[in-house]
Design a protein around this nucleic acid. Structure first.
Lengths: 334, 334
DNA sequence: ATGAAAGCGCTAACAA
DNA sequence: TTGTTAGCGCTTTCAT
């Protein structure tokens, strides 16, 4: 079917090693180089990366495991990751595990069988037991957005705590005191961190927020809507709300409209992520932003460094990026 | 390093062929089966799919090329595609080509070298010359959302023309006559089809819309915003607008707010795609919807059928799916 | 049902 | 610089 290195050897009268050397950037006599290139053109030869992978024990494939491709936050990160990887000759093999830890483990297996050189994971659960075997082979695992509690891996995180602390500070500065928080699911890393940031901001101001002001959502649109309604109903004195991820931000806004709550006249609001959505709202939402592209870039680079050996396996690197804040018109000064 | 089939053979005292047969679901004596399974457990054996791929000339990998992973429409489709593929044992190798035909061609090369078994493409351009070589190897190429003008491939499309025709019909029924269209880029398949649908609806009603009512956008948020403003400024008599993709819908809405245009009191509006966004707007947007998950499922199934030989290479299948319409509150009866 | 042997396309010693 | 050879881990005849 497709031409092989043998065909090239035959056609040029050269040995296999010479062709291989040429293909791998070795030194080849000018005359032969031309002959080889002609043969490659004529026979439409293309290196068989599968064979190469078998021989070198390196597939030049990085496995990527994410909770939900169909999620802007993930998609933005992966877009960047894929770009960086491919620029370095690596292919991206992607598995969506539907935010399910069990499926995440299956994906690791699936990718391991395919002998990917490394694993880039946005973890769905807090345990990383399922990557232990992979790590033992001395192959790198780079975590994004959260890390495992039981297995040490390189990772690129975000300062979730600082993000919400900063948002609360701004609201406190605007003289708000009864600030509601639509928090994330219990046990989820980012959710807990963000909640801690909320508490920290009050603490440093010498205040203690009422427990009624914090409600747990499930990071979904409808969850955000339900939380917004519950918060408003149970806290007549509440003057501001923070939604702690994009989906819940959307849900909260929808519900506020539904309840005919004027933002920010009756209630100040701070959302999360997605700048596009924030800008499409009227008035523009004030939001916490995460540096998604930067996260992707860093994670991919970390992976490349591990893969090339530029960074030795024994040193585990952990990066934490700062979040941003984009001013809108949804915080009212009291 | 990792255990191989040889290790299993040695450990069990059986021949290579027996182990291979076991791995591929062949018949093995009960006693031996148990021995093999024990050995596999002990040695943590996992099939090396790379070696298998070299031997069988099948990698069980499908290459996926898309204009922009970071785009809800694409991401939703790919999520479904990946799910179906993996359920059939196929891995998804994804390349984002940034809506660039040249990069699309590079991606085909990249994936071809890696010997993917098939190619699933959401084309960025109208020519498919770059997949010709791949097809000649008798490997399937399935197109999504648009097809190539010069190369026949299996494909899963959407009735773009009917989608906009239907939207216009609804507006005509509500007694609108001066209906603006924020169309897509010239030469882009979906854009042209949607424009044709717009024209068809008027034609069948015995009307001819003024040329001033159609403006070309570039499928981006800011493009949509600019078009909205231009349309409104140049058409004081316009009573309704249709935006023909999601990003431009968002842009148009933002701009309408900016201009303090009341929707639907001063202007009726029909958007596109993204139901979540439509629901988050106040009032809820009436929108044309595309069956993204269904598109993904169909495309993946088509691929599987080709891959398994269930569908012979010589028969090219083309499916066209109906779009939907979700009523909101942005069409005013005149 | 099982074993022996060949070979997929490539790389990497080693020799020349 | 170039050629010869062995072998990566698997599947697949062909015997047995």
């Amino acid at each position: 079917m497709a031409a092989t290195i043998k065909d090239i050897a035959k056609k040029t009268g050269l040995g296999l090693a010479t062709i291989s050397s040429y293909l791998n950037g070795g030194n080849v006599r000018e005359k032969n180089r031309i002959k080889i290139e002609e043969a490659i053109q004529e026979l439409h030869f293309e290196v068989n990366e599968v064979a190469r992978g078998l021989k070198t024990n390196k597939t030049k494939i990085v496995g990527i495991i994410i909770p939900e491709l169909n999620n802007i936050f993930c998609a933005e990160i992966i877009t960047e990751v894929e770009d960086v990887l491919r620029n370095h000759g690596y292919a991206a093999m992607i598995c969506d595990c539907r935010t399910d830890s069990g499926r995440e483990a299956e994906a690791v297996d699936f990718l391991d069988k395919r002998r990917v050189d490394g694993l880039l994971v946005i973890p769905s659960g807090s345990s990383g037991k399922h990557v232990a075997a992979f790590l033992k082979k001395n192959k790198p695992v780079v975590l994004i957005d959260r890390d495992y509690r039981d297995v040490m891996c390189d990772c690129v995180l975000v300062d979730n705590r600082g993000a919400v602390r900063d948002a609360v500070r701004r609201l406190l500065y605007a003289k708000h005191r009864n600030i509601g928080l639509i928090a994330g699911p219990e046990g989820m890393y980012t959710a807990e961190e963000r909640l801690k940031g909320y508490e920290a901001a009050f603490k440093e101001a010498g205040l203690t927020p009422s427990e009624r002001l914090v409600i747990r959502g499930d990071y979904t649109i409808s969850g955000g809507a339900g939380c917004m309604r519950a918060l408003v109903e149970r806290n007549p004195d509440m003057t501001a709300v923070i939604a702690s991820n994009y989906e819940m931000t959307m849900g909260a806004i929808v519900e506020a409209h539904e309840m005919e709550l004027k933002i920010p006249e009756q209630l100040s609001f701070v959302g999360f992520d997605n700048l596009d959505f924030a800008r499409a709202c009227v008035p523009r939402l004030s939001i916490v932003t995460q540096p998604t592209r930067e996260i992707g870039r860093r994670a991919a680079r970390l992976m490349i460094q591990k893969l090339t050996g530029e960074l030795p396996p024994e040193i585990i690197k952990s990066e934490r990026l700062k979040t941003g804040f984009v001013e809108g018109r949804t915080i009212r000064m009291r």
